[in-house]
């Protein structure tokens, strides 16, 4: 394979027929920057019907080209039609890179079409860098539970496939190009070859306790938590401050709190006015999910990385500090 023959960076546009998923805009905007450096064209790939107004929003992200795919198999998300679609399109157009939003569905088919094409797939990059010497994309991502950053490249094969989590990059449209090429493709996937059939969908009931994304105050407990009995005080503190309780991955692993309360790249991205982390070590995966007005950290380990991210910190026993905060707030 001569990678020089592979051009253009693609973004898969995830949508529900009415609206584009925000992650697709985010990826268009970020990939635009890579294309500006590499000289590649930015191509957005849309399968199935989407209103013209949404197509305009995609164009506003500075795309050079739209590939609009019609045909059978795209009415609802399914592994087979989307895997086939990107296999066929990548073979035909020889894309250099394909960026896919790291949603549940994006993470479902991207690795599969990468395997069908026998190329590399990366996931959860937090930074994308174009290296002009190698003409490769450097996918920078947290590794080993966020204790170290790894640079991942796909130096020989194409396309370079990456799934990237929603909220990693920002949707800041650079504006519509004077000329946007629109290519129409018809690629039908036989509906009878789709091996999953949708029997029903039940939307999650809205539980305000689990809505940490919209909370202005977050009290977050981390791996330092000793046991389940200690949890109550953090709930109480959250309530006193008018906020919500959240946690880091190890507590979800220990089955102390539900996954919907997990803050970070692979959980929920939060933007509170006030964040207080108790016994949180400060793994990259966690802190990349926080954009806080005021960031407080409490940890008994003075060398914990969390103190590098905080505005104010207290080195001490998390339970004791929490109890004292409750006592003073009640006084």
């Amino acid at each position: 394979m001569d990678k020089k023959n592979y051009k253009d960076m693609w973004v898969y546009i995830e949508h529900d027929g009415a609206q584009v998923h925000p992650v697709s805009f985010e990826l268009c905007c970020e990939t635009r920057k890579l294309c500006d450096k590499s000289g590649d064209k930015l191509v957005a790939v849309v399968a199935g019907d989407l209103p013209e107004s949404e197509l305009e929003k995609i164009k506003d992200c500075g795309v050079d080209k739209l590939i609009l795919v019609s045909g059978t198999g795209y009415e609802r998300y399914n592994t087979e039609a989307y895997t086939n679609l990107f296999t066929v399109l990548c073979q035909k157009y020889k894309a250099s890179a394909v960026m896919v939003g790291g949603t549940t569905n994006g993470r479902d088919f991207a690795p599969r079409f990468a395997a069908r094409l026998e190329t590399g797939c990366t996931s959860d990059a937090t930074e994308l860098i174009y290296n002009p010497e190698t003409s490769d994309i450097e996918f920078v991502e947290p590794a080993a539970g966020g204790k170290i950053m790894a640079v991942i490249t796909i130096p020989v094969l194409r396309p370079q496939v990456g799934t990237i989590r929603p909220g990693t990059f920002k949707h800041i449209p650079v504006g519509k190009k004077a000329k946007v090429e629109v290519i129409k493709e018809e690629i039908s996937f036989p509906v009878e070859n789709i091996r999953t059939k949708l029997m029903g969908f039940k939307a999650d009931a809205f539980d305000p306790e689990l809505d940490i994304a919209g909370s202005e105050v977050i009290v977050c407990v981390g791996a330092g938590l000793k046991d389940e009995e200690s949890l109550g005080r953090y709930r109480e503190l959250a309530k006193l401050l008018g906020g919500k309780l959240a946690c880091t991955r190890p507590l979800v692993d220990r089955e102390l709190l539900p996954y919907k309360l997990q803050v970070g790249q692979s959980g929920v991205m939060i933007k509170p006015k006030l964040y207080i982390g108790f016994g949180v070590s400060g793994a990259v995966n966690h802190v990349t999910g926080i954009e806080a007005g005021k960031f407080i950290a409490v940890n008994k380990d003075p060398d914990a990385p969390i103190f590098n991210y905080c505005d104010y910190g207290i080195v001490g026993d998390m339970n004791e500090v929490c109890d004292e905060m409750i006592a003073q707030l009640k006084a």
Binding site: A150, I152, P155, F307
Partner: peptide, 21 residues
């Protein structure tokens, strides 16, 4: 294996916050 790891580095840390005591 098409994916390679040319380098690893410690996360770039911001300057520490103010420790209260």
């Amino acid at each position: 294996s098409p994916t390679k790891v040319p380098r690893m580095f410690p996360p770039v840390m911001p300057e520490p916050g103010v420790i209260l005591d």
